[in-house]
């Protein structure tokens, strides 16, 4: 199936993530034990631990089994990151049709009780840690989202560069030039031969975050946009890419560290 990404992306995204759908009057309660074992090593820092992975979870599986086990990478994962992951996980699970109640459990995390009490009763972070936190996590979440956007965009740009497109050509592309065909995405430009670029997931993830940040996703808008929602001119695109590359490596630091710690923990506890 061929999908013109720029045209339908916003609609698909809202269906995928935000439509509450019609829930049955009472569904199974979901006990969520934090952190959930990661099906895929998350690669962009804690912002994805509670969002992308949860979105990637097989919702029917959760609804059927009523429980999903999470394995902690470290009992010392920072309380704010853990809180963010837990609250996102809970919120996203509550979007799953048939799930009406989610209780978070954090296992051996050092701040398990405070986080569980706070998240399960939807309290702000600062209320859960009155002596240690003086603000809530929205600023942190926003930072992660924005850094995550640059990281996703860098991976997307890299695919375009590797496909042989010049910085000048890339700078001239519109969102509507991106076409997803099965597992791949292509660039279709008027009067030019279509170019197969890379995995469709890279394009989806880029547009998904772009939509979340409220950046222009219209088919006629520039394909590469900075965080101020401006197009990036060809003459600075190479430098922009170098900066994005460093930002992506930076954003992957915590996730990489956590994945190593998780692996070590699993090895120690005999989890394959």
């Amino acid at each position: 199936m061929v999908t013109q990404l720029g045209l339908i992306f916003a609609w698909q995204l809202s269906l995928l993530l935000y439509s509450p759908g019609s829930r049955p009057a009472r569904g199974p309660q979901v006990f969520l034990t934090l952190p959930v074992y990661r099906r895929e090593a998350y690669d962009s820092g804690p912002e994805q631990a509670g969002t992308q992975r949860i979105r990637g979870l097989e919702a029917p599986l959760i609804a059927r089994e009523g429980k999903w086990c999470w394995h902690n990478e470290s009992a010392w994962c920072a309380a704010n990151f853990s809180y963010l992951m837990a609250i996102d996980a809970r919120r996203n699970l509550l979007q799953v049709p048939g799930v009406d109640d989610v209780t978070v459990r954090l296992g051996d995390h050092f701040a398990a009780k405070a986080i569980e009490d706070g998240v399960n009763s939807a309290k702000p972070f600062s209320d859960s840690f009155p002596d240690e936190a003086w603000d809530n996590l929205e600023q942190l979440r926003d930072l992660f989202l924005r850094k995550g956007y640059i990281g996703r965009q860098e991976k997307f740009l890299r695919q375009l560069i590797n496909a042989g497109l010049s910085y000048e050509e890339i700078s001239g592309l519109r969102s509507g030039d991106v076409v997803v065909d099965g597992e791949s995405f292509w660039i279709h430009r008027d009067g030019a031969e279509a170019v197969q670029v890379g995995p469709a997931s890279v394009a989806w993830r880029y547009f998904q975050r772009r939509e979340e940040l409220g950046l222009d996703c219209s088919p006629t808008g520039a394909l590469i946009r900075n965080l101020r929602d401006q197009s990036v001119p060809a003459e600075i695109l190479e430098t922009y890419f170098a900066h994005s590359r460093t930002a992506r490596v930076s954003a992957e630091a915590t996730g990489t560290l956590c994945s190593v710690l998780l692996q070590a923990r699993q090895a120690a506890s005999g989890i394959a």
Partner: peptide
């Protein structure tokens, strides 16, 4: 206690 245990996770993990 938490400080050194956190360090130890880094040590044993990497």
């Amino acid at each position: 206690e938490g400080w050194i245990k956190c360090f130890y996770d880094y040590h044993s993990g990497l």
